[in-house]
Amino acid sequence: MKVAVVTGASSGIGQSAAIQIAKRGVGVILTYSSNEQGAKSTVAHIQQLGGTAVALPLDLGDTAGFPAFRDAVADALRETWQRESFDHLVNNAGFAGMAMIEDTSEELFDKLTSGLFKGPFFLTQTLLPLLADGGAIVNVTSSSTLPAVTVPGYSVYASVKGAVVVLTRYMAKEFSARRIRVNSVAPGATRTRFADDAFARNPEIIPELASTFALGRVGEPDDIGMVIATLVSEEGRWITGQDIQVSGGQNL
């Protein structure tokens, strides 16, 4: 049985990706930071589908903890799947943060850079020895990197996600020697707990926002989760080095 590691899978896009991957008969090691209950719900959902999943804590802002996380992944692989390696890595975990450039603190800048770029970079590096040859990586980026989706206040967030787009291409080049494919998916506005549950707190913004999408609605987690599952699967075997917009034609 193949196994995937999906970060930030206690809710939203990560939760959807973990479930959609599991539906294809793949075991899942999923991570959470603060929302342990959400992670347990994801595991329970996968088990109800007849799949196998394990939840592990992970703080992407703490690179010093990555070797211990790698050991925990190795233990889970041996104990649950009798394997020494895994096949797919989904770097999904993240968070939003916004401020106008003139108001951006160094603390916010460092938090976003560390959690959204440094974290995935060194987590991937740390897990590479456990990632099987011929495997696949998907990094979650953002449509905010596009000129048509330039929203004031997201300069650091979008710039860091843009760095992940470039990193994805370099990973695809360097890891190709091991036949490991690397792509990124760029969601548009999606109905998740993102940005401190913005949609749940401000439902009145949804109709106006929906009108900016060519397909007439904001995204749902499964819109992106299904694409991630496709990219790591056999159907995505000839796709690498791409940043794929999964945004329903936002601001098309």
Rank of each mutant, 00 (worst) to 15 (best):
N183C: 13
I180L: 06
A163P: 06
F175W: 11
M171H: 10
A177F: 04
I180Y: 03
K173A: 11
M171F: 14
M171A: 10
K161Q: 09
A158F: 01
R178A: 04
F175Q: 03
Y170I: 12
V156L: 13
M171P: 02
I180A: 01
A172E: 00
S159G: 15
G162A: 15
K161I: 04
V160T: 14
A189C: 04
R179F: 04
T168C: 10
Y170Q: 15
V165L: 09
R169V: 00
L167N: 03
I180W: 08
A189P: 14
A189G: 14
Y157S: 12
A177C: 03
V164S: 00
E174I: 00
E174Q: 11
V164H: 00
R178M: 01
V156D: 09
N183K: 09
A189H: 12
G162I: 11
Y157H: 14
K161W: 02
A189Y: 14
V160C: 08
R181G: 00
V156K: 07
R181S: 01
S176V: 02
R178K: 11
V156M: 13
A163M: 15
A163C: 14
N183M: 09
K161T: 02
A172L: 01
S176D: 08
R181V: 00
R178H: 02
A177S: 12
R181Q: 07
R178P: 00
V164T: 12
R181H: 07
L167Q: 10
G188R: 01
R181A: 01
V182W: 08
P187S: 05
S184H: 10
I180G: 02
V166E: 09
M171W: 15
K161R: 06
V166P: 00
L167V: 03
R179P: 03
V164K: 03
V185I: 12
G188D: 04
Y170H: 14
V185A: 04
A158T: 02
G188N: 06
R179W: 03
